[in-house]
């Protein structure tokens, strides 16, 4: 897997209104391979969103470097290249759609890039097809459901032909159905088009679908590993007041009580079949 994103010793500090200096990120280092699906979890204020904004040069490092596809984000000439290669989807579905119809909104990115009209048309149609929103092309966005709006936002990013999508809590304001829609869309992009995905979320069942999970705490990466590895550290996660999938927590409790069950478990079928082995007979 070739390296698409590289973050080295990234520190981000800013001044508050009262003049205090706050470090939102402290010496964070991270690599994301092309085609990888990375989930970032952590509390509000843990630095997740700040990190996300560095990946598309919306913020620039105080110290340290960020490379996107080999491009240093702090070099001004690289700015638009970087933003084209890393698309961002934000939390509030309403506040990222610009235009009065779905297709005009999806066209917004390529229009900014100066793509010829015929090519924009092609990209818009393709992007809407990928997120399964083609039939809504000429509708105004405000009547769509939250999940549909987020899919339009994803299409708007896809139309810029990025190599990576960074989604900053894209499901936080959605209902369970909307969450499913958005997660499935992005999973499909990752699986079928090898799109690199950085998915920031509070919902652990979403993080469990990733190739790799990073837990952020106070501007640092506190825990990192495969979902199984990360979630099996139940006590640490609880200490950070983060959720653990119920199955993992149950396996952890059984393990602690002396049952031969590994806490590195994520899905219920797995746990059931293990328990059936141990309990039957």
């Amino acid at each position: 897997m070739s390296r698409l994103l590289e973050v080295r010793d990234l520190t981000h500090s800013y001044l508050t209104r009262t003049g205090e200096e706050v470090e939102a990120l402290r010496k964070v280092s991270l690599e994301v391979g092309a085609g990888e699906f990375v989930a970032i979890v952590g509390h509000n204020g843990s630095g997740k969103s700040t990190l996300a904004k560095h990946l598309n040069a919306l913020l620039l490092p105080s110290t340290g470097v960020v490379f996107v596809d080999g491009l240093d984000t702090s070099v001004p000439e690289n700015l638009w290249e970087v933003r084209q290669r890393v698309g961002m989807v934000f939390q509030n579905p309403d506040n990222q759609l610009v235009a009065t119809t779905v297709e005009e909104d999806v066209a917004f990115g390529p229009e900014n890039l100066g793509v010829p009209s015929a090519e924009i048309r092609k990209r818009v149609d393709e992007a809407l097809a990928v997120v399964e929103m083609s039939e809504f092309a000429t509708r105004p966005p405000h009547n769509l459901s939250g999940g549909q709006k987020q899919r339009v936002a994803i299409a708007g990013v896809l139309a810029m032909r990025p190599k990576c999508i960074v989604l900053d809590e894209p499901t936080a304001m959605l209902d369970p159905k909307g969450r499913q829609e958005v997660l499935r869309t992005v999973q499909r992009l990752n699986a079928e088009e090898s799109m690199t995905v950085v998915w920031i979320t509070h919902f652990m069942n979403e993080a469990a679908q990733a190739d790799r999970v990073l837990v952020m705490q106070e501007g640092r990466i506190a825990i990192e590993g495969s979902p199984r590895q990360v979630f099996s550290r139940v006590e640490e996660l609880k200490e950070l007041h983060l959720d653990v999938p119920q199955v993992t927590e149950l396996a952890f409790l059984l393990n602690k009580a002396g049952l031969p069950v590994s806490p590195e478990l994520l899905c219920e079928e797995e746990l059931v079949s293990i328990l059936v082995d141990k309990l039957a007979g």
């Binding site: 698309g87 506040n95 990115g109």
Partner: peptide, 27 residues
Amino acid sequence: FRRADELAIAMEARCYRGGEGRTKLHT
């Protein structure tokens, strides 16, 4: 104001930089 703020960031993230060099879906 909050919406305006967020929208501005979202537009920037999608490479908005004014009218210069912009093309259109519908000409």
